[in-house]
Design a protein around this nucleic acid. Structure first.
Lengths: 206, 206
DNA sequence: CATTAAAAGCAACAGGAAGTTGCTTTTAGT
DNA sequence: ACTAAAAGCAACTTCCTGTTGCTTTTAATG
């Protein structure tokens, strides 16, 4: 995650110094920020508390991240790597159900909620939103690959993978975001069942 | 101290006065708050600006709504009446597509985004969340009635209306919330097509 | 229409976080 | 070992939140 590597022209010698202490300080800040964002949401975490928790002075936080939104985004991105992946056991239905259950689990996490909040179009730097949206989309991409594989094998008719991804994950997001009831494996099973049946029926109308 | 029930029963005569000016002031505050919430999101609107926009003194806002979250909720609820309804032309598919398009239109509104934000489990008074969730759910209820009507006529197999509602509106929320591309009637048509086909296929297998 | 108390207006607070600045100290890179 | 980049530090200013005591308006009541 090199963000501010030199301006560009190599001419200047003045020696930037991303090593050693600086790197340590930045890492601690990001960790602290991520924890606080997960705890308090995107709005609601405080610079001073970040500094305190990171064991770093307030000004160091401000000077490294003059933009609050960027700090949030960098913190989220740093911890966004552990995303659910999609297995390929040969049984599409089962693989998709597993994926949805894993995805729901991730979304229910405080951290997942923070990510979710960060992509909301209301409020927030557009650049940040796009960055976070990108990492969420990587999941969909994995899903799409799995679907394409199934289509190649004839398990499914050829379909638009991103559309199918939306059909599958939309209800999951809805249920988890509302938070009024837990998302269960039975939910995932019903969703996948209806969507796959629907895709098969509409693609091959007999 | 005969019948000085200050606390509970409506017996107390000391003349509360919800009429006239008070009502006007409260209405102006709610209007202003709703506009600002729509513009700046749930977090990000300021009491002082509410007061200014309402042409009312700051303390009047604070004294009427000591709780920030309650103010937001009341403002949202006041303007949440104009919700999309579901027609019944006899053609389920068409009715549902119309509904989804209308719903997407509502969600794309700054106001819709604010509502959406208010139900997020992260951050925010649980009571408020539940209130807002309630009004969003009224839409689903209308949807459910339409579906039940179709089932009665044999257009659809008997299904769990709330499940169907989630299947249909989930993808809409997802697409609109991401905000990366516009939601079109073609989207709605595809969604309804797949879901209805899926429901028919899974309920009447073979 | 006069009375009266509820509620609005007003001004002056305290408190806390955001953000800035000038200076000193540490330390990475040569 | 030297030097400048970056961290620490302290002392600000600014803005918003939330509160309080007092004055003025005005809705409700008779």
């Amino acid at each position: 995650m090199p963000d501010e590597t030199d301006g560009g022209a190599p001419g200047r010698r003045p020696a930037r110094r991303p090593g050693g202490r600086t790197a340590r300080v930045r890492a601690r800040i990001l960790t602290a920020a991520a924890e606080l964002v997960a705890r308090d949401g995107v709005s609601g975490f405080r610079y001073e508390e970040v500094a305190e928790r990171a064991g770093v002075h307030k000004t160091s936080v401000y000077r490294n991240w003059p933009d609050r939104e960027r700090l949030v985004a960098d913190a989220l991105l740093r911890y966004a790597e552990d995303l659910a992946s999609v297995a390929d056991t040969g049984d599409v239905h089962r693989d998709l159900v597993d994926f949805l259950v894993a995805m729901a689990g991730g979304l229910e996490t405080p951290f997942g909620r923070a990510l979710e909040q960060a992509v909301q179009p209301a409020g927030g730097n557009p650049a940040v939103r796009q960055a976070v949206a990108g990492i969420l989309d990587r999941r969909v991409a994995a899903l799409q690959r799995r679907i394409d594989a199934a289509a190649d094998r004839g398990e499914l008719p050829p379909v638009d993978g991103s559309f199918l991804g939306e059909m599958l994950s939309g209800p999951v997001h809805l249920i988890v975001n509302r938070g009024t009831r837990p998302f269960t494996r039975a939910d995932a099973d019903r969703i996948v069942g209806v969507v796959l049946a629907g895709v098969r029926a509409t693609a091959a109308p007999a």
